[in-house]
């Protein structure tokens, strides 16, 4: 585990802890974020996993983890983390394990569970003040089952259950605000394509005690329909267009860690992905494009 404070890209770890050979898709943005985060969290961790793409990180007898892992179910990973945390606390308190055997608990969840089925268990864990890091890889749909829309799907995105001309009619739920409404000790948005910003936040989160959210946008070549090598570029565009604001919540305040200036038009981001192709072909859907741009503008108008 690296204990030094990360200031520059060169401070990032150059050897990696997460084992290769996982069955995640080539170019998986979620795996990219996870592997960066794992280097910083280190092996004295137990990942409690909610059903999603990353269920298949550990398929008997293969695991990429050098620390520990527990698969639970889709709805209740935070409760699994609660059980592990409580048990470790009891063992420590009763001196049945030495302090160096302690582990920090990390929930690993996709957006399907985080924005939907798992909300109740997550809310409960935050209100109980559970000491855990909640890591959500958000690929904006039920990716493991073929990208049906979830509560995290952005407006107008085509998914396998919103394949019509206007795409998904709903709005992406604001999970960050749902978390901060609970007044957790920390919450942050990150993206694997911005490793320095991510690393600074993880370093910060790691040193805090209590409920902590790390919400990673996870560009998904399979579900978003783009060539795997574009994963990082699309991630950067998500930030530069203002679609994915990088921010953190600490001591009751939200701070944007990156304010894109000038902000690129959202269509620079949208046109990279097959899930938004219907906004450009056969004809540009100016109304929908305008709607999406206006929403992003309105968000930043409140920030800037």
């Amino acid at each position: 585990m690296s204990e030094h404070v990360i200031q520059r890209m060169k401070d990032l770890p150059s050897t990696h802890l997460l084992g290769s050979g996982t069955p995640m898709c080539a170019g998986c943005g979620g795996l990219g974020a996870l592997h960066e985060i794992y280097d910083l969290l280190g092996t004295r961790t137990v990942f409690v996993n909610a059903a999603g793409c990353m269920t298949l990180l550990s398929v008997y007898p293969f695991t990429p983890f050098r620390g520990s892992w527990l698969y639970t179910a889709m709805a209740s990973a935070p409760a699994g983390a609660q059980g592990v945390r409580d048990a470790l606390d009891i063992l420590l308190e009763h001196k049945r394990i030495p302090p160096e055997d302690d582990l920090s608990t990390v929930v690993l969840t996709g957006d399907g569970a985080a924005y939907g089925m798992g909300l109740s268990a997550t809310s409960g864990a935050i209100e109980r003040g559970l000491d855990f890091l909640y890591l959500c890889y958000d690929n904006e749909g039920y990716g493991n089952t073929g990208q049906q829309f979830s509560g995290a799907t952005p407006h107008a995105a085509r998914t396998s259950t919103s394949a019509g001309a206007r795409g998904y009619s709903g709005e992406k739920k604001d999970l960050f605000s749902i978390w901060t409404a609970h007044r957790p000790v920390y919450a942050a948005t990150v993206i694997g394509a911005e490793p320095l910003d991510l690393a600074k936040k993880i370093e910060k989160a790691k040193r805090l005690t209590g409920p902590r959210l790390v919400l990673a946008l996870a560009p998904c070549p399979t579900g978003w329909d783009f060539d795997p090598q574009q994963t990082v570029e699309i991630g950067r565009l998500a930030v530069r267009t203002g679609i994915w604001p990088l921010k953190e919540y600490l001591d009751g305040k939200v701070v944007h860690t990156r304010v894109p200036h000038p902000r690129q038009p959202v269509e620079d981001y949208l046109k990279t992905q097959g899930r938004f192709r219907h906004l450009f072909e056969p004809a540009r859907n100016e109304a929908l494009l305008g709607e999406i741009q206006a929403r992003v503008d309105a968000y930043w108008a409140n920030v800037e």
């Binding site: 409690v48 527990l70 639970t72 179910a73 709805a75 209740s76 990973a77 935070p78 409760a79 699994g80 983390a81 609660q82 059980g83 592990v84 409580d86 048990a87 470790l88 606390d89 009891i90 063992l91 109740s120 268990a121 809310s123 409960g124 109980r128």
Partner: peptide, 24 residues
């Protein structure tokens, strides 16, 4: 020891199994 009130039985059984898997 410790009693933790969960927010559902689904979570309660999950926590029970997870704690037992941790060794208490």
């Amino acid at each position: 020891g410790r009693l933790t009130l969960l927010e559902s039985e689904h979570s309660m059984i999950t926590a029970a199994g997870a704690a037992a898997a941790t060794g208490v």
